[in-house]
Simulated assay, not measured.
Amino acid sequence: MTLQPVFVHGWACGVDVWQPLSALLPADSACFVDLGYFTFSDTVPLGSKCLEQIEADRPILGIGHSLGLMWLLAQRKWPEGSRFIGINAFSRFTQDEGFAQGVAPRVLARMATGLQRAPEDVVNNFRERCGLQPVEGASLQISALQDGLQMLMTGDVRCSAQELTQHRQRDLLVLAGAADPIVSPAMTRAAFAPETLIVWEQGGGHMLPLTHTRFCADQIRQFMNETS
């Protein structure tokens, strides 16, 4: 059965981050999940509404940027045969006793407070660090941004990610930027099991789907062409 591509963007991003990459991949039946951080288009299903359109027993090719991979792995037990690609991704983001490489909780707490007081500043400061253009404050959907930030603060899908590396044919590929200002190389390595296939782009930052589109497309095609 052909895998259905499901693309999920990261925090403070939108489905537009996938436009260059999806153009280089077979994506006729693709689902582009919009997590609703900005004023949304009626043509794009939000969150789980998009997932409802996927056949329950059809395996997917889940492609998640940053928070997008964690979101995918946290949604459900996907059908056998599903494969996943994380770009600038992680299975845990916030530091805890067993994950010293994560971002300090106080940083996320400060962002959460800022979303209530000056949301445009918080979002655009983050987007600037990612190398993205600012967005208008009127477009922000604060509740959705808060939900995403909460997942960054508490989300943990390390067990689910590790399970994907235990098959004879590995079902998880991670594409990482060695110069990523959001997800450091140390965090990337610590967030995934040692057996995880991680491919590094030495000059890459946090927006590989936009800045290193062909690198991502080539790695995805190679991953999907692998045989068990």
Rank of each mutant, 00 (worst) to 15 (best):
Q150V: 14
M70R: 08
V107Y: 09
F84V: 12
V122S: 11
P119Q: 09
G155T: 10
S139K: 04
S143T: 09
Q141A: 06
M151Y: 12
Q141F: 01
C159M: 05
L108S: 08
S66H: 03
V123D: 00
R83T: 03
M151L: 15
F84M: 08
Q101Y: 08
L152I: 15
I142L: 13
R106Q: 14
G68W: 01
S66F: 02
G155C: 09
R106D: 12
E97I: 07
L140K: 00
G86T: 08
V135A: 02
L149F: 13
G155R: 07
E80M: 05
L61W: 08
C159L: 08
G148Y: 09
L149P: 10
I85M: 04
R168T: 07
N124K: 04
R168Y: 04
S66I: 05
N124G: 08
D121R: 13
E163V: 09
V103P: 01
T94A: 13
A144P: 01
G137E: 04
I87V: 14
E80C: 05
E97Y: 09
R76G: 08
P134D: 01
L140A: 02
G98K: 12
P79Y: 07
W78R: 06
E128F: 06
P59M: 06
R83V: 06
F90C: 01
V107W: 02
L145F: 05
P119E: 07
N124T: 09
G155P: 13
G64D: 09
G102F: 14
T165W: 10
A74F: 03
A118P: 01
Q133M: 05
G68N: 08
W71S: 08
Q150H: 15
H167P: 00
H167Y: 02
L152H: 06
M151C: 15
G102N: 13
Q166H: 04
Q150Y: 13
G114D: 06
Q169T: 04
M70N: 10
F99G: 14
R76F: 07
L164F: 06
V107S: 05
C130T: 01
E120T: 13
G62T: 11
C130I: 03
K77F: 02
V157T: 15
M153V: 13
G148Q: 12
T113A: 14
S143C: 07
A100V: 15
I87H: 08
G62Q: 11
P105R: 12
C130E: 10
L140W: 04
Q116N: 12
S91Y: 04
R158P: 04
W78C: 01
W78G: 01
Q116W: 01
R76D: 12
P105S: 11
P105G: 11
A144L: 11
N125Q: 15
A161I: 06
